[in-house]
């Protein structure tokens, strides 16, 4: 019985060390390139901005406590501090405006499309083709998309030429507050609605088809089935989509960063990510203090949003099992106490 002998020998060897060896590269790289930079960001946020030419700023080496945070959140006496504060607050405000402006149309569009695509009663030709086309904007380089729309929406660009032909005067899509924000919202929706649609579709297809069949037999219309079955059962995925979209929205960078001509960024669409990025490339040297503090604020907001998804993503069966196991242990303990601490 050589096989069983080998089997027994193998069973007795501990393979735990291989587990550590296999996950080691991941964690080394993670600690060096992600965790340490994260800690370093916190460290930097308590230090000066390394910019001796400006008043009220100190070198990178000097600890300044919460000065950077108070500057960003409440400004200060000096003009440059006040400007820093205003720029940060407006970039946060812009981020929220741009996110809401792209999420609301996006979810309406994606949800309705997902419902129609999965409705077995409707016979729409070329569903596969439509799905492929609608997802396509999502894989195109966002930087190229931004420059493309910048060219299309410039004073003499294609959009204004078409508008001119129907008698609407040229609109300044690049510099006008409402027009530029609207365009960025449009581009973001254009980029992401296909992705959201496919995620929601896979969610809807996870709902048991017998529910829809039963509803159809009971005489429910498509609209009723949508509001009474699809929406309630889809809510976990909807929350997931909402939170990931929020976190993604906080990182919005490529489009707002590139949607302008010349070297100056349009202040109406400057997001937090753009604000932080600009600190690295400041005219008078990098301002790591402000960048760090703004990053930490962004991190706290992301963490709050991320923990929501984390709790939604937990393995619910696993938790139920754990609870049951605990209860069994407790019962066993209680029983053993009954018998005077003897475990049977």
């Amino acid at each position: 019985m050589a096989a069983t002998g080998a089997q027994r020998r193998i069973k007795s060897i501990s393979y735990a060390k291989y587990g550590y060896i296999f996950i080691l590269p991941f964690f080394i790289v993670y600690f060096v390139f992600q965790l340490w930079p994260l800690i370093n960001t916190f460290v930097l946020s308590f230090h000066g901005n390394g910019n001796p030419s400006e008043k009220n700023t100190t070198s990178n080496e000097v600890l300044v406590g919460f000065d950077n945070y108070s500057t960003l959140l409440s400004g200060g006496e000096a003009r440059n501090l006040r400007m820093q504060h205003e720029e940060f607050v407006s970039s946060f405000k812009n981020t929220i405006i741009l996110w809401i402006g792209n999420f609301v149309p996006q979810i309406i569009l994606s949800l309705s499309l997902a419902a129609w695509f999965t409705d077995a009663r409707l016979k729409i030709m070329g569903k596969g083709f439509f799905k492929v086309v609608m997802y396509m904007p999502n894989i195109i380089t966002a930087a190229s998309v931004s420059v493309l729309f910048m060219s299309l929406c410039s004073d003499k660009g294609a959009v204004n030429q078409v508008l001119g032909a129907i008698g609407v005067g040229p609109i300044d899509f690049l510099k006008g507050t409402v027009a530029s924000r609207g365009t960025v919202m449009f581009i973001q929706t254009w980029l992401w609605f296909g992705n959201t649609m496919i995620m929601l579709m896979s969610g809807i297809m996870g709902i048991s088809p017998s529910l829809f069949e039963a509803a159809e037999i009971d005489g429910a219309t498509s609209t009723q089935a949508f509001w009474k079955i699809t929406i309630p059962l889809l809510s976990p995925i909807m929350v997931y989509t909402l939170v990931t979209s929020m976190i993604g929205g906080l990182q919005m960078f490529d489009i707002p960063y590139l949607y302008h001509t010349g070297t100056e960024i349009n202040k109406d669409i400057q997001t937090v990510a753009v604000y932080i990025f600009q600190r690295y490339k400041n005219k008078n040297g990098a301002q790591f203090g402000y960048a760090g503090a703004a990053s930490v604020i962004l991190f706290i907001v992301t963490l709050a949003l991320g923990s929501i998804t984390f709790f939604l993503n937990r393995d619910k069966d696993e938790i139920a099992k754990k609870k049951q196991r605990k209860k069994l242990q407790k019962d066993a303990k209680a029983r053993s106490k009954q018998f005077g601490g003897l475990s049977i």
């Binding site: 930079p37 370093n40 992301t302």
Partner: peptide, 8 residues
């Protein structure tokens, strides 16, 4: 975007 400053 959060770790960027420390990373750079």
């Amino acid at each position: 975007q959060v770790t960027g400053a420390g990373f750079l």
